[in-house]
Write a protein that binds this DNA or RNA. Sequence first.
DNA 1: TCCAATCGGTCAATCGATTAACTAGAACCG
DNA 2: CGGTTCTAGTTAATCGATTGACCGATTGGA
Lengths: 339, 339
Amino acid sequence: MATRPPRLTDVARAAGVSTATASMALNGTGGNRIGSETRDRVLAAAAELGYRPNTVARGLRTRRTHMLGFVGDNVATTPFAGQMIRGAHDAAREAGFLLLMVDTTGDPDETGEAIAALQERQIDGILLATMYHQVIDVPAEIKSTPVVLLDSRTADGSVTSVVPDERGGALGVLAELAAAGHRRIGHVTTAEDVEARHIRLTTWREHVTAYGLDADELFAESPEGRTHGGYDAAMRLLRRPERPTAIFCFNDRMAMGVYRAAAELGLSIPGDLSVVSYDDQELIAPELAPGLTSAALPHYEMGSWAAKELLRRLDEPDAEPVQHLMPCPIARRDSVAPA
Amino acid sequence: MATRPPRLTDVARAAGVSTATASMALNGTGGNRIGSETRDRVLAAAAELGYRPNTVARGLRTRRTHMLGFVGDNVATTPFAGQMIRGAHDAAREAGFLLLMVDTTGDPDETGEAIAALQERQIDGILLATMYHQVIDVPAEIKSTPVVLLDSRTADGSVTSVVPDERGGALGVLAELAAAGHRRIGHVTTAEDVEARHIRLTTWREHVTAYGLDADELFAESPEGRTHGGYDAAMRLLRRPERPTAIFCFNDRMAMGVYRAAAELGLSIPGDLSVVSYDDQELIAPELAPGLTSAALPHYEMGSWAAKELLRRLDEPDAEPVQHLMPCPIARRDSVAPA
DNA sequence: TCCAATCGGTCAATCGATTAACTAGAACCG
DNA sequence: CGGTTCTAGTTAATCGATTGACCGATTGGA
């Protein structure tokens, strides 16, 4: 027999009280209107019956579903997404919230559709995530639904957001090199027009020009930021007359190419060449030999921060928007040696 | 002014009909009870007002939320999860469903908690995913909620499930080697007690013993299935007097170690040694030089299949459980050459 | 011509909780 | 002792949609 799950009515009847009393007893609402003896009876009855509130009914009445919408572009196809989702998930769950996920291709119409689908389901707030740090416009559909941007921000700062502190991370790995005595630090990057490229590049450029070096001589880029691009750029860079003693790579994948180039040129890492990078991808940085020192993108922390901030804003809808920069910790491994 | 979103009542009033009529017109229910002229008026009014049904209210009445629960153990921390989620997500979305996600550590109690949390939200069905192919017990909490297992199965086959056809994939990459004339095919694997290890190992063993070879001479394992383990095992295997002409690796990460070992021993791939592997991880297999031939785990397809199957079962609750094996396509790259 | 069926809707109950408004009885107070 | 305040509940409205039961006006068939 598939007996239907017990309703509040059943609990109330079993405890010999009205549903109002049962509701208040279970939720601890209504202040001191419920006698402790009665409360215990209700609680016992609920436990006895295995009562679980129907949150759909509750949501209809309270206008709170305890669900957060998570909209991501290509959530699944990028290796970072997971940590971001998990960070948001954990923070949400801790507060009794669940994540309703929608994956999109990043197309604005589709994103709008996704938001509408979430709103139909009466989610309490939206986490709008991009898989790479970027500047976006917030879709108009959102209107009055609270929203926090994850790994992206608006140009005007009118929406609360969190992005990695790319500059800080770059400074961090550059400091590692500086501490080991490196000055001629090269940079291998992608030509793709992404926010991360610009910040990392600019930070590096400031760093080396501060030593009075010519940045252009230490710079090489490739059309795409993957292994092959890194290999290509490194080959060009390392064959120059005065080759750098260290390289700061745009990301771990390019660093993988740099490792290969160094090997082919008979340069040992870190003996002949120190290498630092960005992203700290778990499938790459620790797996390379020697392990790669890399600035980590704090995806978990950003996800967690965003969810907590969103939850806070559910109760304080009029709080001023905040732009948060999340620090990028340095994962130190063995790819850096004294110059 | 934050005017509240329009309700069905508003649409009905604007169209000059009752909410019953409006509901039927919008949903196309009630057969031919609604005149086409009236229907158009309702549709126009809804469009005009930007009406979006409140699915919480609808769900309360219809007992259908159009949400699927997705429970995964460590969804986020494994690189595979994404494709599985995306497959499920896409299939669900196409049918107008959204995914409510819960991530767990794999602990049974926690999984039970997760399922209860989803059931409170009245999800229509549950996708229970593990991140590695394994045999599990289905938590008792599920009871009458339809469920499909993703990348795991029950011992007794009493629950519908989908897992990769590991045997087929292993046969596939072994066939690649066989076609290139290889017979002395070594196997490098992990000692971890996982389903995948057993199937891949057994399949390989059958394959080489069919040639009359002594499997033990061609076999090496390491405590863990990562790069270093692969390196270690490969070193041992390749130093034996009669070394194999090809190696079938448990997974791409171990293959990465095999590449390194081969390089150190001065063996070129695929010239001196052909290598095939399993998993086809996008961050590894295509990025290695030469590209690694690998059997792909069909995570997207499994996710999609599972969601579709679950949706089908919502309408046919009494369908017989099915155990599905999803084929593992071979990604052919350049790590195989004639013996 | 009269009854039944069809057409095109409307009414009102319902889903399962929450909560504002109300109340019976006890306690208190000057 | 009469009025006020607590205490510990109950009653009933409500959230926003869906849907079974009805219903008045036509149409059709015998």
